[in-house]
Computed example of a mutant assay.
Amino acid sequence: MPHTRSTLAEDLVALGVRRGSVLLVHSSLSAVGWVCGGPVAVVQALLDALGPDGTLVVPTHTPDNTDPASWRHPPVPESWWPVIRANMPGFDPVLTPSRWMGVVAETVRTWPGARRSDHPQVSFAAVGPAAETVVTGHQLDEMLGEHSPLGAVYRLDGDVLLLGAGHDSNTSLHLAEYRLPDPPRRWEGSAVRSNDGRIWTRWPDVDTDESDFDQVGDAFEGTRGVRIGRVGAAECRLMRQRALVDFAVDWLGTNRTPRDAPR
């Protein structure tokens, strides 16, 4: 049988989605299977499970608005770098589409009443009563730290749902990286809006690394802090973000080898 808005909402409630909560979702529509209504029905089901007092949050990152010197998939010739830096459109939270975040996240970005944080690389969008609280105050040099929507979800005691996605996509683990003592740092660059239209700007930030996130997630699941179940055809993982981040700070501090070389 095909999956529908109502059957997906039932699956989400059975998994443990809390009515009235703040829910950060990383998703893969293809993993869910055939849905009558596609990504719109998936978003409707998420909002149904959360209820009118709940808030849905998704990543709406724009990795193409980064320094081309760091591009690897694919790289571009060095002779292109100054052209890209001079001509990349400045990030606009209303107009700039997300990239590689999935069609569900992009659907939330354009949802009626959606709010989006104003970060040129790692914005988040939210729908619901706490949306403005989640997205406001996203600092340029706190991409995924305390002064980002991830920090806001932590303060609001929100949940994380991996909807057919793995822990390698679990951005809340980056918040744990920011909480490590003296994390390595690197220079970032993006095009941003200005009074003159747009400028290219650079700033130092934490040198994030998701290469061991699957290991962190597996270890956290060993604490029984994750509820695993099916939403449609997708294997899903639901967890409290505070418990995840607190665990990850300890795990990374114990198991991660420090990287000293700046990038």
Rank of each mutant, 00 (worst) to 15 (best):
R198C: 06
E221K: 13
D207G: 05
V134M: 05
D218K: 12
F91C: 09
A130W: 07
G54P: 03
A126M: 04
P112G: 09
G37W: 13
G113M: 00
V122L: 11
R116A: 04
L156Y: 06
A126E: 05
R224Y: 12
T257P: 08
N65I: 09
N195V: 11
S30E: 15
D214T: 10
P89V: 03
R18P: 03
G51Q: 06
S194R: 01
W111C: 02
V17P: 10
R115F: 10
H73V: 08
P77R: 02
R230A: 13
N195D: 15
A41R: 00
D214N: 11
S194M: 00
I84N: 06
V32S: 04
V127N: 02
P68G: 04
G37M: 03
P112W: 05
R240G: 15
P181G: 07
G51T: 08
P63A: 05
V160Q: 10
V135D: 03
R242D: 10
G151N: 02
R19D: 14
V42L: 05
S30L: 12
E221F: 03
S211K: 04
A125I: 00
D159S: 15
S21H: 10
S117I: 13
R116W: 06
I228D: 00
R198P: 02
D260A: 09
T66V: 11
L56F: 04
A69R: 09
R263H: 08
S30C: 01
Q44C: 12
Q215E: 15
D159L: 11
S117L: 11
D250G: 05
V134S: 07
E146W: 05
S172N: 14
E188F: 15
T110S: 12
L140D: 00
V231Y: 01
S172E: 14
R186L: 11
S98T: 13
S123Y: 02
D260T: 13
A152T: 03
T133M: 07
R185Q: 12
R202W: 03
L173V: 02
N65E: 05
V160G: 02
V122F: 11
S190R: 11
G37R: 10
Y178S: 14
W187C: 06
G253Q: 03
G158M: 12
V134G: 04
P112A: 02
P52F: 01
T133S: 12
S190G: 13
N87Q: 12
V249P: 07
A126G: 04
W200C: 05
V127S: 04
N65C: 07
G166V: 00
V58Q: 00
P39Q: 12
V35L: 07
D207T: 01
F91A: 10
A234P: 04
R155K: 12
L8N: 11
V25F: 10
R242Y: 01
V103H: 04
L95Q: 15
R179A: 14
R18K: 15
D118E: 14
S6E: 15
H167Y: 14
L175M: 06
Q44W: 07
G253A: 09
L175H: 04
T171E: 08
A9H: 05
R198Q: 13
D157Q: 13
P74E: 03
T60D: 02
R237H: 13
P59Y: 01
E210I: 06
L180M: 14
T171F: 08
G189F: 01
L50S: 00
T257L: 12
Q121H: 09
V103T: 14
L50N: 00
R72H: 09
V35F: 12
